[in-house]
């Protein structure tokens, strides 16, 4: 389907906003995980969560790049 320039700009703004919101989404679980005193593979849950969050944001950046290129970026 053809996309006019205005739509493309709108979809890119929506994409950027969604990605940024997703990047901060793990904040919602931070305090809960921080209160857990369990370990996963010997590593405290908070540390696993923080490593996962870091890698999640990295993945988001990769996805953003792929989608952005497809949108003509």
């Amino acid at each position: 389907m053809l996309m006019v320039p205005g739509e493309r700009r709108l979809s890119r703004v929506a994409l950027y906003s969604a990605v940024l919101a997703l990047a901060y989404l793990p904040l919602a679980g931070l305090l809960l995980v921080n209160s857990l005193r369990v370990a996963i593979g010997g590593v405290p849950a908070l540390w696993v969560y923080a490593i996962g969050w870091t890698l999640f944001v990295f993945t988001l950046l990769l996805v953003l790049h792929v989608v952005d290129v497809r949108l003509g970026g």
Binding site: L20, Y24, P44, A50, L61, D68
Partner: peptide
Amino acid sequence: GGKVWAITLYGMISYLIGYIVVP
């Protein structure tokens, strides 16, 4: 200890913001 993750996380998020703003 655990506070250090704020530094790594802000750095990674910076790239997302950079991707949007830097071009």
